[in-house]
């Protein structure tokens, strides 16, 4: 039997004595397309870091593809938020894309011709190949994010993690991005993390809401109850692009 893509079992995490995550449980099969929603400060980024193996839980276990996250580093792709990038850093688009091969090859030796080919394919897929020699700081936020997507794809991931996918993407690329994630989802598990409900495209197969605790139903339905619990305040659920979803429109506020 295929191992679960992600299994988070009774995970607690505290930072400086402050609880960030409480008793989080999550089981995601391979091939899923999961959106984790939560307001700022809800612990989304921490949960993401736990799944990526960047931090370890205070209590509980996290398994990715049935193993410790750190031992499957070569099978996951990660697209961080654009805001964390040092824009003066002297690095070209191509070199960023190649970084995706780190888990496979380049850690102690140079990148091979095959690594270069994969980086090229990935850059072509996001229409950034012609910018390959451009310094990363000379791109727009949207272009930069495409390069980060290419970098994640270069790793040939079985699971793709994406932090705030709509934060800096330009509008024209947004629908392209979702088509693209949908295509990727035919062969890989996709996990997007966002504070923005507009990530809920029709491709999302399951939704979880997070606010220290995780509210999760293994379906694409997001209920007003989940939203209220996570956001502690009324949030409008805008139903465009989600025709099949069960949504209750919130009363006037």
């Amino acid at each position: 039997m295929q191992p679960l893509a992600i299994e988070v079992k009774d995970v607690w995490f505290s930072y400086d004595g402050q609880p960030v995550l409480r008793a989080v449980n999550l089981r995601i099969k391979q091939g899923e397309f999961l959106a984790i929603l939560g307001p700022n400060g809800s612990g989304k980024t921490t949960l993401l870091k736990l799944m990526l193996g960047i931090v370890k839980p205070s209590m509980g276990t996290v398994r990715v593809l049935g193993q410790e996250p750190s031992s499957v580093a070569d099978r996951i792709g990660y697209v961080p938020q654009d805001t964390n990038v040092n824009k003066d850093f002297p690095i070209s688009v191509m070199d960023v894309a190649l970084m995706g091969r780190l888990g496979h090859a380049g850690r102690s030796r140079g990148y091979s011709a095959d690594d270069g080919r994969r980086a090229r394919e990935a850059l072509e897929k996001v229409n950034m190949w012609e910018y390959r020699k451009r310094p990363i700081g000379k791109l727009s936020g949207g272009q930069r994010q495409r390069v980060f997507i290419a970098r994640a794809l270069t790793a040939d991931p079985q699971i793709l993690f994406m932090d705030e996918p709509t934060a800096s993407v330009d509008k024209e690329f947004q629908s392209e991005l979702y088509d693209f994630l949908k295509e990727l989802n035919t062969s890989a598990t996709v996990v997007v993390v966002s504070h923005d409900l507009s990530v809920l495209s029709s491709y999302v197969k399951s939704v979880a809401c997070l606010n220290q605790t995780l509210y999760f139903h293994d379906s694409a339905e997001i209920t007003q109850e989940m939203i209220d619990m996570a956001y502690h305040c009324p949030v409008d659920l805008i139903a465009h692009g989600l025709p099949h979803r069960v949504l209750r429109k919130h009363e006037e506020h």
């Binding site: 193996g53 580093a73 996951i76 990660y78 970084m99 995706g100």
Partner: peptide, 16 residues
């Protein structure tokens, strides 16, 4: 390559 990744994007480097 590892120094480059760590200097440019520490979290990505950790995840990789």
């Amino acid at each position: 390559n590892s120094f480059l990744a760590m200097s440019f994007d520490e979290e990505f480097a950790l995840a990789a």
